[in-house]
């Protein structure tokens, strides 16, 4: 493969460049427009440069609960991320051995990823409505004061909302774990066990360090997908709104660049998480190649 570049390489490079422009161009325009002066409008030319719209955003932009929604999304995202990493890792370990029902479980996870979100979201909403109606019916039937007086709903950010997000993030986590364990060489574990390590020691000191970059990948998917999730949350978060849901509402009502400022902040947070994760993965790989350069290359 040492021949010079063919014509198709240059044509395809040009097309790739166009695609990247198509991907990032629009986002760059709203980032630029969000730094406009106070008199700025929804489109170019830019009207001065300032942080006016960010201050306006932080002050609540006259729309209530924007900051609340941001905090809701951060909190939910944190829980979803931790649960996604833990549950995916456990499931990945489980799938290394064959067990009854593994095919059903795997294809259920794939189905959860594929089926339209509006259906999943509606289903969860209906499930919780039936729970609520049942609890209230029991409360009335047995005259339980606590239920009659104060029970509202079981639906909420941390119950139905959390579940809705997990049906979206977990399949990605499981697929990543599958991909890594399919290529995993269990000789390292055997070696550790032969040297007298317990199962737990093998797990913590051998397995986790080896698959750490993939766990970082699961972390990235867990947070970013939850942070931007909207279709499954739409019917399933109850009274509290997440940031994307609030944002969706604002698209029809707000006609100032403050919505671009909100877009810049949201995208900025996504990018921060992506950059941190990618740097962690890269530094893990570098450290590995420095310290364990003969791993897998010896006389094993």
């Amino acid at each position: 493969m040492s021949e010079g570049r063919s014509r198709s390489f240059y044509v395809l490079s040009f097309l790739f460049g166009l695609y990247v422009l198509f991907l990032y161009g629009p986002t760059l325009t709203i980032v630029a427009l969000s730094f406009q002066g106070p008199g700025g409008g929804m489109t170019f030319p830019m009207n001065g440069v300032s942080l006016h719209w960010f201050r306006n955003l932080w002050a609540g932009i006259g729309v209530p609960y924007v900051v609340d929604a941001l905090l809701n999304s951060l909190k939910l995202g944190a829980f979803v991320t931790v649960l996604t990493v833990v549950i995916s890792l456990m499931a990945g370990l489980a799938f290394r051995r064959s067990f009854r029902g593994q095919s059903v479980l795997f294809y259920t996870a794939i189905a959860s990823l594929t089926l339209p979100s509006i259906i999943v979201s509606l289903g969860i909403a209906l499930e919780f409505q039936i729970i609520d109606q049942s609890v209230k019916a029991v409360g009335d039937a047995y005259e339980i004061g606590a239920i009659q007086n104060s029970y509202q709903t079981a639906m909420g950010l941390m119950s139905s909302g959390l579940g809705a997000h997990l049906t979206w993030t977990l399949p990605f986590g499981v697929l990543i774990m599958f991909a890594i364990f399919n290529r995993f060489n269990s000789a390292y574990e055997e070696a550790a066990q032969d040297l007298g390590a317990s199962s737990w020691q093998t797990f913590i000191h051998v397995l986790v360090p080896i698959i750490a970059p993939s766990l970082a990948g699961v972390f990235l998917f867990g947070f970013t997908l939850s942070w931007d999730e909207i279709a499954r949350s739409s019917q399933a978060v109850g009274a509290d709104n997440t940031l994307p849901l609030t944002l969706q509402g604002l698209t029809t009502t707000v006609t100032t660049p403050v919505i671009y400022a909100l877009g810049t902040v949201t995208t900025g947070i996504s990018f921060a998480v992506i950059i941190v994760t990618v740097s962690v993965v890269v530094s893990l790989q570098k450290r590995r190649s420095r310290h364990g350069s003969d791993a897998g290359k010896g006389l094993v």
Partner: peptide, 29 residues
């Protein structure tokens, strides 16, 4: 290589995934 794992290990490891999918995906459908 892993036959020394207990027979039910896979089941409790897969349980959280199964529980989430059952509660928030299968049952809602």
């Amino acid at each position: 290589a892993m036959t020394h794992y207990a027979r039910w290990t896979s089941y409790w490891q897969a349980a959280p995934l199964a529980a989430v999918l059952l509660l928030f995906f299968v049952l809602p459908l």
